[in-house]
């Protein structure tokens, strides 16, 4: 680990300036991803700017929804009664991620910005375009179990590991930013990028952009929502695939729905084709499956030393069908 300076400014704008002015500086949230990467040599910043106590650690009512300060810890967000009642998928996503200790540390701002768990990305002795642009992608033809089937490129096939981000994508949350040029907002679904030929860039944020809060919209259907994570062990494991979904039902008819996938793409995958396929339909297993198939029509599984990840297509299809069965109560 290379040495670095530690700074603890007292205002958010100071923090933004300190990072914006220094290409080698980064924000430090709960540190659960960044400190890991410092030790691995994946991140080699010259300065850490601690923002945990600069951004709000409060959850407040706003426009019928909730505004979550970036400093709110994952465990506190999951435990908030308003979140549990109005946005159960958010609480479930959080509680299915990491461990109790990590959730006590991880912040709302840091969680969506955690980086991929691709084993080659984390191992500085192997080529990786995300870590070292132009060096190649070791995952292609390698260990692919946790890699993408949607939206990947020849430069990178990594997935985004955050569970919370999948739920926030489904909800179409709003990211509140403070940048060197002031405040702005970005729709959560626009925050993360597909890899294209710039896999080193996970998000649309510029250097120095600080997440100050995340806004959850006024979305009554989110009360009927869930987050289903499928993984290789019962706890403390990243998703093979996951589904965040909310449904607005009128009898058996699906008036509206929100669906996002995790574990299958470089970003939390907003399943708009599936949503479109379901809107106005009568709830039923055939319709659910057709929606999954519509979304996965372009899926491109990987071949690898582990037998590849084509299993994610039926797995995700079945998981989505199961989730929709559960949310609608329709089993046929």
């Amino acid at each position: 680990m290379k040495p670095f300076a530690y700074q603890a400014p007292t205002t958010a704008s100071d923090a933004v300036r300190q990072v914006a002015d220094d290409p080698d500086a980064v924000f430090l949230g709960g540190g659960t991803n960044l400190v890991d990467h410092l030790k691995l040599g994946v991140a080699r910043p010259g300065a850490l700017v601690d923002v945990t106590s600069l951004t709000s650690a409060e959850i407040t009512e706003r426009d019928g929804g909730l505004l979550i300060g970036a400093g709110v810890r994952n465990s506190d967000l999951a435990a908030d009664p308003r979140v549990r009642e109005r946005y159960p998928l958010v609480a479930q996503a959080l509680l299915s991620g990491a461990s109790g200790q990590l959730r006590n540390m991880a912040t709302t701002g840091g969680n969506p910005l955690q980086r991929t768990r691709c084993v080659y990305f984390q191992d500085v002795t192997t080529p990786c375009n995300k870590r070292e642009p132009g060096s190649g992608c070791s995952a292609i033809g390698g260990y692919t179990r946790y890699h993408a089937i949607l939206g990947a490129s020849e430069h990178c096939v990594a997935t985004h590991p955050s569970d919370l981000a999948v739920a926030l994508t489904a909800l179409d949350a709003t990211v509140h930013l403070l940048g060197p040029d002031g405040e702005r907002t970005v729709a959560f679904g626009q925050l993360h990028r597909l890899p294209g030929d710039r896999p080193d860039k996970d998000t649309v944020l510029d250097h120095g952009d600080l997440i100050t809060a995340i806004g959850l919209p006024d979305l009554p259907m989110a009360r009927r929502s869930t987050y289903r994570k499928v993984r290789d062990r019962a706890s403390y494991a990243f998703a093979l695939v996951s589904v965040a979904a909310a449904v607005d039902l009128d009898g058996d008819a699906i008036r509206d729905t929100r669906i996002a996938f995790g574990g299958v793409a470089h970003k939390p995958w907003c399943a708009t084709r599936a949503e479109d396929a379901l809107r106005g339909q009568t709830a039923g297993v055939d319709a659910f499956r057709a929606a999954a198939e519509a979304e996965l029509a372009d899926a491109a599984p990987l071949e690898g030393i582990d037998g590849g990840n084509a299993f994610k297509i039926p797995l995700l299809t079945r998981t989505l069908v199961a989730v929709l069965r559960e949310l609608t109560g329709v089993n046929r």
Binding site: Y6, L28, G31, Q101, L102, N104, M105
Partner: peptide
């Protein structure tokens, strides 16, 4: 409860 291996002492 937290993980002390991921918490920087300065912080």
């Amino acid at each position: 409860r937290v993980l002390s291996c991921l918490m920087l002492a300065v912080a």
